[in-house]
Amino acid sequence: MSRDRFERALLRVLRPLVVAVLFAATAFPFFYMVTLSVRDIQELILHPGSILPRDPTLSTYADVLGRQGFLTFMRNSAIVATASVAVTLLISIPGAYAVARLRFFGRRQVHFLFLAVYLFPAIVLAIPLFTLFTMMGLRGSLAGLILVYIAQTVPVTVYMLRNYFESVPRSVEEAAAIDGCGRVETIWRVVLPLSKPALAATGLYIFMIAWNEFLFALLFLVEKRDSWTVSLGLAQLSGGIEVPTTVLMAGSVVLTLPIVVLFFAGERLLTEGLTAGAEKG
């Protein structure tokens, strides 16, 4: 057999095998997460090897949402993430427009600053912010956490929005200007409606960062249980031994599901937005 035919035959076997391994390695843990979350802890101890639950129960969810306080944690996470998205977009839209369209002193330096902020390690920033918030008595407040998330997401948001704003034809904006729109009005009435997919994508990105974040939530909120986010709540409770593992697994599902659903919903919305634009030419 020639080398070419041998390699082709090998690939025909290898490719499906690699795909199967990748699928198992990524999908199985999450499948197991869900099936474990509807089991009683006794069942896990007695039959640790079983994949499907023998006697499915939703009492784990009732326990984690009610008694363990995950409903409160979800509310906190939702407040933090939504506020971060709103304020970050509000700040970033004019900034991104300025970088995309206007010539001003320091425009190039701004890029460098943003790249530096994006790459800068959170663990270094954690030290002064933790100190400052302790001094100001801001620890335990969600507002402080939101402020940090805004600062951490603004640079990337400006960068992502700028790329999109640059693709909006100047002629559309000029037409708006001739019709008597001021600069802010042009952004509001012309640029933003044209940039809906980009706004959705960046909003999603900010929401995910804020919902998933752990280090700053731990540093700022750990002493005040009522203010815990879902991530922090799960990390704190899984460190102890009081709460059964299957109940915490229900907590993991509650933490993971909104983000995964949002991500895939957003991804589809994005591709739809792009193809719709292409059809119109």
């Binding site: 699928f23 999450f30 998933n212 991530s231 993991s252």
Partner: peptide, 16 residues
């Protein structure tokens, strides 16, 4: 499926 480990919150996957 491949994207989920990256999208999911680190606390949840570490616990898993």
């Amino acid at each position: 499926a491949i994207l989920i480990p990256y999208v999911a919150p680190v606390v949840a996957v570490a616990f898993l």
